[in-house]
Design a protein around this nucleic acid. Sequence first.
DNA 1: CCAAAAGTGTTCTATGTACACCCATGC
DNA 2: GCATGGGTGTACATAGAACACTTTTGG
Lengths: 231, 231
Amino acid sequence: MILSLVMTKIEMDSLLLCEIRVVIFSLYENRLQSLLSKSIEPLGSGQWEIPGSPIKPDLSLEETASTALTRLTNIQEPYLEQLFTYGETNRHPEKQLISVVYFALIPTDSHQNTILIDQDIKWSPVSSLPMLVADHHQILQYAVRRLRYKLEYSAVGFELLPDTFTLSELQQTYEIILEETLDKRNFRRRILQAGIIEPTPHQKGGEGRPARLYRYRPDAIAEVKARRLFP
Amino acid sequence: MILSLVMTKIEMDSLLLCEIRVVIFSLYENRLQSLLSKSIEPLGSGQWEIPGSPIKPDLSLEETASTALTRLTNIQEPYLEQLFTYGETNRHPEKQLISVVYFALIPTDSHQNTILIDQDIKWSPVSSLPMLVADHHQILQYAVRRLRYKLEYSAVGFELLPDTFTLSELQQTYEIILEETLDKRNFRRRILQAGIIEPTPHQKGGEGRPARLYRYRPDAIAEVKARRLFP
DNA sequence: CCAAAAGTGTTCTATGTACACCCATGC
DNA sequence: GCATGGGTGTACATAGAACACTTTTGG
């Protein structure tokens, strides 16, 4: 009786797998790139996958995602957001594999801190991904769609830049992710009117006229309400 | 050795609980209401909770949610959408409880079909909820926010109405959920311009002048793209 | 004929879009 | 002094918001 209960529990357990995956985005070489790790599963061995971690019962899902992220990069306070939870039955040949997927944005100036342990981790442009295990390609494409979508109605663009940045850098960020060119004057007017960034006293030199540096206003409303399409 | 492995597995298993919850919305007595079930857990015994189901390894998450919904209502093709996955460590005193939460919209004419098994299931207006177990109150409030938000940029309003409906009924639906009054002429113009509903040859009688019945155009684009706030 | 709900257009305002030149610095 | 990228304003088109009366039916 007790033994049978034990067996049932084990069988139940072995049918259900729960994990965290984190789609990590960054701008790199003027392209939107994502961090991939080499699969160690026997099934997808040698293929690349979205980095992840088993669920740790003593941490919340977001803390687990954050920990997985810190293991790969040195980012302290990354932008992290839950994307979707995948649980189709065909994701794994034997078990039901549930993946709670997050997406993270890390600033351009933090690449140096990315720990690229031998050849098992690499950045890959989202426009030319290698073969990925299972449905990871689909997941990553969805994450890109969400990032683009989010860029259109919220302020998430700053998360991919250093603490201070020029308006041109910010515009380039938008252009790279949205894959279209934007009008400089309109871009500046709108982003400044929204009141989510403020000028700093500093400038950035280089070729040509120096540019004013701006920073995100942490006190600004995090998410600006999208205007309604319907009444 | 084997025994210790077994024990570990059991302990691991007993630390992680995975479930589906479905926030079920409907319009009822001119209010937005949600279906609640009485908790049978020893902890929240007697309190109300968002209905749910354990995860079934042979079904996808969405199928499990759909099954749980069909058990409570007789809706065949409900509107069902993933809301969020909750996994804070303080949700359950001993274990880590992961709840994949969906939200469902069911039409007003299907209330009769709702199976209200004795007193263990009831409709409750979202504006006056009873005490709910754990963080279910917070989850439900978030679902309401998402519903309102979604109503503003997509076409979900129809999902709460019968197959055919008058423009006044549709406007009332929006007004109830958004908790504000809308201009009749602007509402009609915009909803018709969007091209997501079409007139039927039928009318609905009653007091006053009969109203034309409309229906959702299944071929219309499901989600109309929200206009950009940022460039 | 009256009560009750359906249906219909126009004006004004705000927001988005398109577009070209001068400015400050380093070499 | 010139090459390089930074910075600025205006006119036009489009979309949203405010607003009041006529129409059709049942009793």
